[in-house]
Design a protein around this nucleic acid. Structure first.
Length: 232
DNA sequence: GCGACAG
DNA sequence: ATCTTGTCGC
């Protein structure tokens, strides 16, 4: 497990963070299909916090896309680098997530984020941000529609409906289990929306959330508990 | 101006 | 995100 420092020049104010988003947004690539589902590696990343002790734990878990078996794992511990501000989540998570990705012993392949990509007030959510910084193909799969609207998809797994910001489709509400609340898929970097949905379905044979984020979530919570328990 | 708002 | 018991179900 690696320890992270907050990068020099990391935004300290909301205005600075928005300026960074405006700059990096130009580098998002939307015209690549992305890797095909079911082959190669798929990596889930997630983060857990202990605001009391100013600790953040990140995990990256690499799965074999065909079998969903765990191929590799890594974790990183850092200090909280930004307060939670809706629309600026990436500045809170990215330094530690980058460290966890760097610590992996193999290429991550497609990275699945717990949150949004283009489905973002400024069209530059966590998945876009992470994609631009790493050059990796990324998608976002979120549990909530945030500020966006959607019509309920048909009740069968695989059904979907546009996730809308007014008239603009920023992602899809995708049903991953029959009659269960959909997840909210959006493109991050170098992946197409239909392909992002296909990956999400390939990662949800049993549960609503992708196996990648379930594994990463469990791992980062575990390490957070370990470090918090170690230092009273 | 006020409220809502990924994790 | 995080705080939290029991409970229903495979």
């Amino acid at each position: 497990m690696t320890t992270v420092r907050i990068p020099a020049g990391w935004p300290a104010t909301e205005a600075e963070a928005r300026a960074v988003q405006d700059e990096l947004r130009e580098r998002v690539v939307l015209d690549e299909p992305g890797p095909p589902p079911g082959s190669g590696h798929v990596t889930g990343v997630d983060v857990a916090y202990d605001d009391e002790r100013d600790v953040v734990a990140a995990a990256a878990v690499v799965l074999d896309a065909a079998t969903l078996d765990v191929v590799a794992e890594s974790t990183a511990i850092g200090r909280i680098s930004f307060p939670y501000v809706p629309g600026l989540l990436a500045f809170r998570e990215i330094p530690t997530v980058l460290a966890a990705l760097d610590a992996l012993p193999c290429p991550p392949g497609l990275v699945v984020c717990d949150g949004y990509g283009l489905a973002h007030p400024r069209r530059f959510g966590l998945a876009c941000h992470l994609g631009v910084l790493t050059g990796l193909p990324t998608i976002g799969v979120a549990k909530n529609p945030f500020t966006f609207t959607y019509d309920d998809p048909a009740p069968t797994r695989g059904s979907s409906a546009p996730l809308l910001a007014g008239d603009e489709e920023v992602g899809r509400a995708l049903r991953t289990r029959d009659a269960v609340k959909p997840v909210f898929v959006s493109v991050g970097h170098r992946v197409t929306l239909p392909n992002a949905c296909a990956h999400t379905l390939a990662l949800t044979p049993e549960y609503r959330l992708p196996e990648t984020t379930r594994r990463a979530d469990a791992l980062c919570r575990r390490v957070l508990k370990e470090v918090s328990g170690t230092r009273a």
